[in-house]
Each structure stands twice: as C-alpha cells, then as structure tokens.
Computed example of a mutant assay.
Amino acid sequence: MVTRQLGSTGYEVGAIGLGCMGMSWAYQESSRDDDRSVEVIRAAVDLGVTFLDTADIYGDGHNERLLGRALTGRRSRVVLATKVGLVVDDLASKTMHRDGSPAYLAAAVEASLQRLGTDVIDLCYLHRVDPAVPLAESWGALAELVRAGKVRHLGLSEVSVAEAAEAHAVHPVAAVQSELSLWTRIALGETDAVPESEPVGGAGHARPGDVVGWCAANGAAFVPFAPLGRGFLTGVLHSATFEASDLRARAPRFQRDALAVNLRIVDVIRTVADRRDATPAQVAIAWVLAQGDHVVPIPGTKNLRYLRENVAAAEVELGAQDLAALAAAPAAVGSRY
C-alpha cells in the first residue's frame, strides 16, 4: 500500500488504517466473532495496514484485549493507537461519562498497556475533553506519561481548533481524530446538524472550525473515523432496520425518512464510482484521502472482503470533475447522534 507520514511522529504508515471498534461493539453486535476479527486484523497488517485504532471503552476493554491477541508476534509491524478519557457506566446501554482527571488518565493508560500486551502505546488520544477538568491539566498528565516512556505521542479526539491549539501549547499534538466523510464535513469548517443534547461520547461542537487545516498547519496528522458514514456511504444500506444494540438504530440520519432522503448522497458517489470503475466505498475513502496528504482515514470492518476493498481505495485517483461532483453532493439530513 502507498504510505503517508503520520504527522510529526516520524512514523510512516499505510495510507489507510483500520478502526477496530466495530469488532467489539456499536455495530451488529450479534455477529461479533473474535476469531474472525483476529484473522481480519492479521490480514490487514499483511496488506500494509500498519496503523491500528482502538480505545479502552470499546466493549469496555474487549477491543484492546482483542488487538493484543491479534498482534502477538506482530506488534513491531504496526503503529498502535488507543484512547482514554471516557468511562463506561453500563456496557449494555453504552452509557458513559468523561473523566480527564490526571489520576484517572494515568490509571487508564496502565490498564490499556496490560490489555494490549505492550510496553508502550505509540499514540494515545484524549478521547473527549472533560469540561470538569481544565484541558491543560488533562493534557499535562498525558505528557507526563510520554516522559515516563509509557506513551510515545499524544492525540486529541473530536476537539475544536481552539482546544487543539490550547493543548499544542502545552505538549505537541501529534494527531487529531474526528469524524469526516462525504456526509459529515464539520472538521473542514463546514456546519453540520447537531442535536440540542448529545450523548456524553458525542462531539459537542456544532462549529469546531477547520480542524483539518489546523492539523496541516501544525504538523499533526488528521485521522478521520467513520469515513464510510457508518456503512451508509457504501451503498449497501437501504433499510432503517438495525438490531437494538446497534448505535445506528437511534441515530437520526438512519431513521426511515432521513435515510430515504440521504440516499441522494449515495447516488452521487455511485455515479463517480461507475466513472472510475470503483465501488462507492472506495470513492468515499478516496475523497477523504484527497483532503490532504496528512489525512489517514481508519475505516472499520470485520469482513475480509470489505477489508480488501477498503485497502484498494488507496489506488483510486479522483479527478477534478469527480471532486467537484462530490463537493456538490447534498448535505445529510439528520444529526450524527
């Protein structure tokens, strides 16, 4: 696979990473299969996917343990990223709260190291800013863990430009992870529908500013999660029926009326895909890649076929006509959460 520099970390990684969350929770949990997920993770590494993403809350530790198992004998071949700062209150309902206190963050990193079976985390994100704790205090505590050799680089997740700049003044921000796709463009400085009250794990920023641009200007990588719109932009979802534990069952964009209107976005993607002899998923990922050389998307899958399809998106080149058509795609109806 073609490679990209992961910000100022010095790491050169595959241009497309792997988001592992869905292997443990959030999507079609009834189909969870740890053995199959281990096979997908190992196949990804063999295909040149060397940037793997997880978090301590994914399955309340399950996802980190899964990665630790899959990377036995392969740890040196990958850049391993995890996130701390959210605490699961109830696994079944996925209720959680934020905790950015220094004591909690230090304990969370120690627990992640144990579950991942590694001596050091390559990239550790503050999963969400805790409004009850000054950001400089949380960030400073994570910087202490870098100095202690437990973490190599630090990142932020779902922050505004102002928050990224505040943290960067304390310790370098190596990466910012936020949602970015053809139906969620707020990280580019565009507006997006935001509900009056988001869940604790939500972003909380209606207008975070041009975070992608801030990263480019400050030597940080931008890591888009959900580049396939939680599966919607692949063009294979035509129904609003999801099992109760699937987060899309409650997401406004996936409700029946909104989903029917949002299929107009997929129609635009499919037109470009037909012109490029590619799949809609590959075009959706290629558009994210086209937002800057510092952008490293992390599409998730627990299916070998879709893994190979996603990896091949790195070879899809979009022309000016394609990018113009995609830029003109209608905005999504419904908020993210």
Score class of each variant (00 low, 15 high):
227 P>L: 02
178 S>T: 12
175 A>L: 12
196 E>V: 13
197 S>Q: 15
184 T>W: 11
227 P>I: 00
197 S>N: 11
218 N>W: 07
197 S>D: 05
219 G>W: 08
223 V>R: 05
213 G>P: 00
209 G>Q: 12
204 G>M: 11
217 A>K: 12
215 C>G: 07
213 G>A: 09
201 G>P: 00
218 N>G: 02
227 P>Y: 02
176 V>E: 11
221 A>R: 07
207 R>L: 12
187 A>S: 15
210 D>R: 02
211 V>A: 10
226 A>F: 06
181 S>M: 11
217 A>G: 06
218 N>K: 10
221 A>V: 10
177 Q>N: 07
213 G>N: 08
221 A>G: 03
212 V>L: 14
187 A>I: 01
218 N>C: 05
198 E>P: 04
221 A>N: 07
216 A>T: 04
197 S>Y: 00
193 A>F: 01
195 P>I: 12
218 N>L: 07
175 A>T: 08
176 V>N: 07
211 V>E: 12
198 E>R: 12
229 G>T: 02
214 W>T: 04
179 E>T: 01
218 N>A: 05
208 P>N: 13
180 L>I: 02
201 G>N: 07
187 A>E: 09
199 P>M: 11
213 G>R: 03
225 F>I: 01
195 P>Y: 00
229 G>Q: 07
203 A>G: 11
196 E>K: 14
199 P>W: 12
202 G>E: 02
216 A>P: 04
189 G>L: 06
210 D>V: 01
217 A>M: 05
202 G>R: 13
220 A>D: 02
213 G>S: 10
198 E>Y: 10
179 E>G: 00
179 E>Q: 14
